[in-house]
């Protein structure tokens, strides 16, 4: 995650964030904070190829949850692209939270079929 005023860098950072979100979700239903915690796990960061010490254009790319500015833009843009679906589901305490899951079928499948 990176905070920069350069639009190109922000797009690049958003693309990375989207990939990390998708990797973090795997096949589970997770809320935003849960996704954030999953993304902070070393295994997820390593899988996504974004080590905590990586640099992006001179700005620190922080895999720690200190900069969360791109988490929700990434989640919502993935939802808008039909990669994720979201629903307000009750947690264990009965409080409804916005929960995300990967879509099984969506436009991304066309790309995967094309690649295969």
């Amino acid at each position: 995650m990176s905070r920069t005023d350069d639009p190109a860098r922000r797009v690049e950072a958003l693309v990375r964030e989207r990939k990390r979100v998708l990797d973090a979700l795997r096949g589970e239903d997770l809320t935003g904070p849960a996704i954030l915690r999953r993304m902070s796990e070393p295994s997820t960061a390593a899988e996504a190829g974004t080590p905590a010490s990586a640099q992006l254009g001179g700005a620190a790319v922080d895999s720690e949850p200190r900069d969360q500015s791109l988490l929700y833009p990434a989640l919502h843009s993935l939802e808008a692209d039909w990669r994720l679906e979201a629903a307000w589901l009750p947690d264990a305490g009965g409080v409804r939270r916005r929960t995300y899951r990967k879509r099984r079928f969506g436009p991304h499948l066309l790309g995967e079929i094309g690649r295969s």
Partner: peptide, 22 residues
Amino acid sequence: GRLGPAAELGRQLRMAHQSTRR
């Protein structure tokens, strides 16, 4: 602070929602 400037977050979310597909 971790979510960043409110206005910037609002703009990012607006762009995320208002995709070309939509």
